[in-house]
Design a protein around this nucleic acid. Structure first.
Lengths: 157, 157
DNA sequence: TCCGTGAGTTGGAAAAGCAAACCCTCACCT
DNA sequence: AGGTGAGGGTTTGCTTTTCCAACTCACGGA
């Protein structure tokens, strides 16, 4: 008898159990910006030190960050993103763009990201096959496990 | 005297105060899939009913969801994404792709999203100006508020 | 009339969050 | 030798959230 507690199997949910706790994505933000030391993280994120310590352990265990020694005697550490960590950067960029668009009057953006092409980065999510930007109406979801369905538009058996 | 508690101003942080609480993005997932009714959400997400109620209120207040009546007598409701909510879908897609790649042996993906071009959607985040996929090395961050700097690669005054 | 469904609310225990204080190692200054 | 200060955390004690089960209320159908 399965408990009444088996939610839809989903990689979004799985990803969020790793990086969805409070502050985890902000840690990743700082680390991607190159601010990987404990006290920098405390200051720039504004998180309690103990919680930060917990998050860092978790992110290292998950293979999203690594802890590097940048000085023996006295021993000092720095957290850096792994490959997997860097591949979460698009999530941050997309979230930042959303926040800029919906939570701020245009042009009090607290940070601007510049792309190597010379312009400000305005990230778009697109289909890597056909190259066009994805819109909700163009998507059809296909759950792979029986018993899990979708209903509305964007639906499929 | 500013408290010792002013973190870096950031749209990622702001966005996460709205959608970063536990279950919020899963609610958005279900709602984007067309499963917008309370009991569907409870079942598909596996969240406690009281917390779900709290999250739904918050998301509606934030303008990310709307609560629609789909039946008077007996009164029944359905939550749907607003425009702003739909614009968060790219975040979900990116997160799902990451989870599929890093948390699963390829091909036990619990859900496949099909794009209208006929292929499975493999989302990429790209620069809307030059069209090329973004890589970490191509980015330069420019904080707009004095006092907030970045250090490593990806750094800038 | 009794049962089931949808959409929540309520109450109390368990877990997580928080701020401040504390600890340890080393380096530097005097 | 003693004091100061930075870096990188851990400990303590309290507050806030979560969690779970049970309960409500309004209806509709058998």
């Amino acid at each position: 008898m399965a408990a009444t507690k088996d939610p839809r199997p989903c990689s979004i949910a799985d990803a969020l159990t790793l990086v969805g706790e409070k502050y985890s994505l902000l840690v990743l933000r700082e680390v991607c910006l190159g601010n990987g030391r404990f006290d920098q993280l405390v200051r720039n994120i504004g998180a309690p030190r103990d919680i930060l310590a917990t998050r860092l352990r978790r992110l290292v265990d998950a293979g999203i960050l690594t802890k590097r020694v940048y000085s023996e005697r006295p021993q000092r550490f720095e957290y850096r993103p792994t490959r997997a960590g860097l591949e979460l950067e698009p999530v941050l960029l997309t979230l930042m763009a959303w926040g800029d668009r919906h939570l701020r009057g245009d042009d009090d953006r607290p940070m601007v990201v510049e792309h190597s092409c010379g312009h400000e980065l305005l990230p778009v999510v697109s289909c890597s096959v056909c190259g066009s930007a994805v819109a909700h109406e163009d998507l059809t979801a296909h759950p792979q496990s029986p018993g899990w369905t979708v209903s509305g538009p964007t639906a499929a058996a």
